[in-house]
Design a protein around this nucleic acid. Structure first.
Lengths: 242, 242
DNA sequence: AAGTGGTCTAGACCACTCT
DNA sequence: GAGTGGTCTAGACCACTTG
């Protein structure tokens, strides 16, 4: 199989190559987790030097689109897994304790204007709302409010929710074929309402950190919107600038 | 001038090369802002291929140690400049308004245990404490509490402080020869005291975002410790994970 | 025009993984 | 041993900046 490379004026060959491969990944030619053809095969297919093709793949790797493993191959990245909201908080003994997770409620409902805007769908379109409480050793610490667009996440709308995984993203991939590839967390401050406080074991009006997340798939569509609430005094986050 | 490359077993040539150049930069052979020798000169000096030397320089560039400019050269990075604490807050009209800056107090004093620990000096050693209020259009929004180790920052301890720059880091470089190269911001929430609230125009006990910064020079020594306080309701920050 | 970094090639050899 | 990505070389040519 031979491919022609469309070289826009002023564009590098490796950038054009990366763009071409990116498009083929989005088209589903190599699904998440699958291996791309070997370097020399791809290089011959596009008629470029090995080093040029390697540079294109390194570009895709630096963008988090593929993962390269010495001796094994180059793979399309699977969904995120290590992105828990708990990294924003200092709870418990500091040991890497595993947080328990309980689904408090689950309902179909029409998207509010705000949720629809963040999901990129029309207001009133059906979504699945999941409320979930995370605890460390019986102490509730984080309340999550999750909205999922509904035709897509139908498999989660029915059936037993008590056996769900602690990590949602791998579950989205397995049960709905949705791969979360990138997420954007917006950190802010607010107070909790009475009902929220009750679940968290905090008085109404207690200061809370509020993290609003949008999660995106490979194609850049927003597939999840999530608001997490936790005691402001337990919040901490470190940024390094250079 | 020819240089020998110490190749630890299992180490790449470009990594060793980067390490060697890093050491020469730390030693002051090329001060911040200065240009390194041209690629072919360095490559010949170390007896490596051009591509290998380029890879070493790209490594240093990715670590923020040098900056490469097409057609001009490779330069040791100068101090940070665009790292204002205001990026953590949503104040004013949202337009890129320039914040005014007023030094509220300046005093020599012995380092408290906490400040000493963060600065990496002994407790009780002399430091300069600067308190500074930043405002947007007459509205105070950010209170900064800065501690500087004192033998080093002597030039700032005396003289008129009213004409100081809005950006401190370029001033540190110009007046004290200290180049801030990296900074770590630790974000948390708390409340303000009575005196702090008075300066910020907030009631005592009002919820505040607290950003604790450590700033480091090229060699990794902590050269500044800073605590910034602002209204928690104005706080917001976005992180993207991938 | 001279000097700098950026792109691209062709090919040799090494290191890791799997079976 | 066969197949993968990682390192290194030598050299040609291009693009940008400066005098």
């Amino acid at each position: 199989m031979s491919h022609v490379l469309a070289l826009e004026p002023g564009q590098n060959r490796y950038a054009a190559l990366a763009q071409a491969l990116h498009a083929r990944i989005l088209a589903g030619e190599w699904p998440p987790g699958a291996a791309l053809p070997a370097e020399d095969v791809l290089a011959r297919a596009y008629g470029v030097a090995l080093a040029t093709l390697r540079r294109a793949l390194e570009l895709l790797a630096s963008r988090g689109l593929v993962e390269r493993v010495h001796g094994r191959g180059t793979f399309v990245r699977e969904s995120l897994s290590g992105a828990t909201m708990l990294r924003f908080f200092r709870f418990g003994s500091g040991t890497g304790e595993v947080p328990a997770s309980r689904v408090v409620s689950r309902r179909r409902l029409p998207a509010s204007a705000e949720v629809a805007a963040r999901l990129g769908i029309g207001p009133g379109e059906p979504v699945l709302r999941i409320q979930r409480l995370r605890s460390l050793g019986d102490v509730p610490c984080l309340l999550e409010d999750i909205h999922l667009p509904l035709p897509l996440f139908e498999p989660l709308a029915e059936g037993d929710a008590s056996g769900w995984d602690d990590l949602f993203y791998p579950m989205y991939a397995r049960r709905c074929g949705v791969h979360v590839h990138r997420a954007s967390d917006d950190i802010g401050f607010g107070t909790c309402g009475a009902a929220q406080g009750q679940l968290l074991g905090l008085p109404a009006g207690h200061p809370c950190a509020k993290v609003q997340r949008q999660a995106f798939d490979l194609a850049g569509r927003c597939v999840e919107v999530r608001t997490s609430l936790g005691d402001a005094h337990a919040f901490h986050y470190t940024v390094t600038i250079t």
